[in-house]
Design a protein around this nucleic acid. Sequence first.
RNA 1: GCGAAAGUGGCGAAAUUGGCAGACGCACCAGACUUAGGAUCUGGCGGAGCAAUCCGUGGGGGUUCAAGUCCCCCCUUUCGCACCA
Length: 890
Amino acid sequence: MRLTAFLLSVGRVRSGLRGGVSGFLYNGSMSEINVMESERQGRYSPAEIELKWQARWDADAALYAAEEHSADKPKFYCIEMLPYPSGQLHMGHVRNYSIGDALARHMWMRGYNVLHPMGWDAFGLPAENAALKNNTPPREWTLANIAAMRKQMQRIGFSYDWATEVTTCLPEYYRWNQWFFLKMYEAGLAYRKKSKVNWCPECQTVLANEQVIDGRCWRHEDTVVEQRDLTQWFLRITKYADELLDGLDKLEGWPEKVRTMQRNWIGRSEGTLVDFAVEGRGKATAGPSTTATKDAASAQDDKSNVITVFTTRVDTIFGATSVQLAPEHAVAKAFASEDAALAAKIEELLEQQKRAREAGDVGAIEKHGVPTGRFAVNPFNGERVPIWVANYILADYGTGAIMSVPAHDERDFEFAEKYGLEVRRVIAAKGEEAPLPFTAEDDASLVDSGQWTGLGCEDAQRKMAAFAKANGFGTATVTYRLKDWGVSRQRYWGTPIPMVYCTKGHAGVEPGGVVAVPESALPVVLPEQVEITQQGGSPLGRIAEFVETTCPVCGGAARRETDTMDTFVDSSWYFYRYTDAKNAAAPFDSAKANYWFPIDQYIGGVEHAILHLIYSRFWTKVMRDLGLIKNDEPAERLFTQGMVIKDGAKMSKSKGNVVSPDSMISRYGADATRVYALFAVPPDKDLEWQEDGVAGVSRFLGRVHRLTMKYAGANASTAGDSTAGQELLRKLHQTIGKITQDFSGRWHFNTSIASIMILVNEIAARETAMDAGEVSGEVITQVFRGLTLLLAPFAPFLAAELWEQLGGEGAVFRAAWPVVDETLAREDEIEIPVQMNGKLTNVVKVPAGSDEATVKTAALADAKVAARIEGKTVVKVIVVPGKLVNLVVK
RNA sequence: GCGAAAGUGGCGAAAUUGGCAGACGCACCAGACUUAGGAUCUGGCGGAGCAAUCCGUGGGGGUUCAAGUCCCCCCUUUCGCACCA
């Protein structure tokens, strides 16, 4: 159905040749291509060249194959983020892969052993939606999409080693998800708990915190995520919080932006837990309610006699004039259960919080609070402070309770002003009474704070935390914003979680308790016959043959876990599988992974900065601790390319501004499409797609084709080395230098391609000279071969064709990257601008390498310059050798 | 509010370290060629001016022989974070 629509749209644009190309793309029939016309005219026909080479490349499995291990070549592992197989490549993919492809080809030519793989992030909800819509099984739909997209990729000429292809929805892959899950379960890294989780009503499943953006689903930006209490499987990513954070400092090859986003996401915060005894609630246990457990929030379960607050500023505690609880705090609930009026007010605060969350602006909530009428005791000074419940206190951060210090916290100050709470200064800046709220802690010290008065803030924080600990009412602690990764999904199209629940239970397992599926029983295969509906609950739960099983320990009746894993599990380690994709005995062979890892260059969109990129860092650390690999981090260097936009907005169906790669390829060819994607802007910037630009690139490639074909047969024995020949070689070598530098540096391929255009313009300008036999055949051949090699990473089809026409040996991508000959590249004569008071007057030519005196003399001797300075005094002459002359004139 | 990046012709952009602002390309204009093509080739193309020349890199100051580039203030856009205690 899509195919028909596509052909129709192509037909509307133009019939004939181009329609034929897309026909080939989908039907695999060469007969539809009308190549004869362009053949007769000898004109650049991308369709003809590209289809010819595509067929050859497809038949040559070794062309892009990495060597398993190379003793003499350095390795280079280059990956672009794998796509979700939606069925259609979009321009963002084409751009992403064109960047990686250029790099991979370049590195091959530089003599590296390159692994450049591709795979499919093939589980996920769209397959289920498609199943509902078209009545096609998800597996069938997904595999058909993969086949179509693989074909598109081959048509565009990406240099993937298809022998290493990874498809995450196949049992041979996802069994290792299950295997890792079991390993994590054994290590205590996978666990089950009931908690508040994010629920997307559109997806009909739970989402991880990372998948909720401004209170909305990451896939449905209009859908507000709800909070539900559910029992779910979690992966203990928080165990690695510090390592994930500290590791960022060493990831110098990653964009600072991504590192910052991850730092924010992890949200490490050092502070102190302090217990405030609740008055009239019995004696606060002198026992270490906080010190006994790291999980401070759970320490307060079912206790209403103590409130543990988390603060980063324990040094301000003598200024605490109230305690503020989140509406969902256990103590608030306990109070509410005894006071209906209070309960109603707290309920209202909770509603406000919920609304703010749904509106996506938690930060803008107007502060409201209610006094509970109860009091708590500040353990540092024994003072009674009122207990309030407030809508700006978050239950899921810290302990869900704070001490309010209006004098030294802006939020507390605002709240205190509104409700008339006391504001008491306990910190003073050096020498002056700074206005309140005063929040700085550098160069400030404590006042009116008992025995700590006079201490510097940081010093006081350390000493007061130690004091609290020594006296059993608190401790220094660290909190994180990062929460454990909820991986249960109430969906069908994903990896089954390899757990069963033993119905009757057995020794050590209560009835309905968790029992891990043994490794030997993997994979737990996802059943294929399933009815996808919009009903709630996991679709697997409705398949009796799947659910009903036996307990692997006691052999009694058991039920399988019916949730599947988050698809981000699949993508957390897929790049390790590339190194050993066919391994049936292990996720991969450690020696192979250790040879290729870390990834030398990873390329993808910034939208995964805190999704895939944090999960895969976590997974790498887990695998390292399991002894599977040696590297701490998955990727040495990360590059985040810009978006492809059209008419100022990201391409999307709803906006109707989508430009399909197929339409570009059928009109201008894959080479032109790719080169345009690299030429228009530097790869890290957003790219506004302009079809006229693609047409321009196509004309440029046509010019390259025409010129090369014209001189491909140049007779090597033709003599005659004129200036023209030297100039051509000079330009060639300058271009080689420029592009080589671009690849190792800033990746400004737009200027790389511009420099190739300049080279081609220079060649075209010397056509007459070449036709007149002024340039030797050898030079002509060198120039065109050089040009072809430089073009190969960007326009592989045309380069392959021209390389063959020029009689090049083997595949152009295995030919050696040209090396700059500095002697040939050097200019004999350079132009020096002559300025007067910093303004350009004229340009003079001097021999390259001229000394200061020579340049100065030449500048002053210039007629135009002389005329301009006549009657004026030259106060000073500044000569920057090789750059310019500036005459300071009065 | 905090943090980061950016702001240059009609448009996409270029200008590694302060050194000819606008390379390269698109669009446009003029011309050539033609078995009219969505072709190709030549020339022009920041603004003002006949010209000499002057003005011009978001705005305003500054440093310097020289500033798109460095410093200070401000404006705008994009992205990230945001009652995180």
